[in-house]
Design a protein around this nucleic acid. Structure first.
Lengths: 157, 157
DNA sequence: CCTGAAACATAATGCAC
DNA sequence: GTGCATTATGTTTCAGG
């Protein structure tokens, strides 16, 4: 898409920012061995070239009352026209659905949802999702434990 | 766990930071209607109470050469001792595995992995993962399209 | 618990190289 | 394309309500 030449300084900047999005240019300059002003400029360049999609804060979900994570597989009824479009709009509007992907295989969509507890999850699955008219099949899996969460793209040196 | 009273200002701070982790205290103060100095203090308090787990930068994976995302379900061979521990160490060490959860149901673990392209994914699944001795079963699903990605915890007002 | 001002730190940019 | 110097912004402490 956008062709941009990245050098070792850029990789180091991206790496440092992946692990802490709030690093100042001074802090970055120490990690990448470049002057703060250059860090600032290069960062602007990386943002302009769309290599950085977002800076976001990961909150402690369980401290904030969301104790349960579940994965949901959904198959839509393809006979219904516009079901995909309606489905996507519905997905967007439900904040408990954090992620949604269309996938290969029998199910059409995979969702990551959070809920306060199991009873709430049950209600959510049955009412918010289960009642949608164009859903043919819905299966859910409860997350028992988070083993790894490091959404950091591997980068060269 | 940690009991901390959060008021409307705290919720607004967290909300603002979720969507942009790099907001300055001045910018935050405008969004939440509080002085910059108070934003700074409250933010420190929220961090100290562990409500904020990380500030991270989401990079454009496909621009950086990772065009393929896949989900992998893995069942471990329970007869092998210590297989869980070995497995977790292996998972941690492989950067292409971004997330891993232990889950209910037939499979033991669910993984999100990224790869440059389908041939690389195939090699990765067969060699890096498939060859582990304690794996009993491994199935993968290719992500066709990202419909929603907004890992923002729903918060009160 | 808050604001506002002062002292300090950092960011952005023009310029020389 | 980089570092340095300057000016503009931002951060944080502290006095005072």
């Amino acid at each position: 898409m956008n062709q941009i030449e990245l050098d070792s300084f850029d990789w180091r900047l991206l790496k440092a920012l992946q692990t802490n999005a709030r690093l100042s240019n001074v802090a970055l300059s120490e990690q990448v061995n470049l002057s703060p002003s250059q860090c600032s400029r290069r960062l602007q360049r990386l943002e302009q070239h769309n290599l950085i999609e977002a800076y976001f804060t990961q909150l402690n979900a369980s401290e904030l009352g969301y104790q349960v994570t579940a994965f949901v597989n959904i198959a839509l009824d393809k006979r219904q026209q516009n079901s995909d479009k309606d489905f996507k709009q519905t997905i967007e509007a439900i904040p408990e659905i954090l992620e949604c992907y269309s996938i290969s295989g029998e199910a059409n969509y995979w969702l990551k949802v959070i809920s306060s507890d199991l009873p709430s999850l049950s209600i959510f699955l049955n009412e918010s999702l289960g009642n949608l008219p164009y859903i043919q099949d819905l299966t859910s899996t409860i997350v028992l434990n988070r083993v790894k969460y490091s959404p950091y793209i591997p980068l060269p040196n």
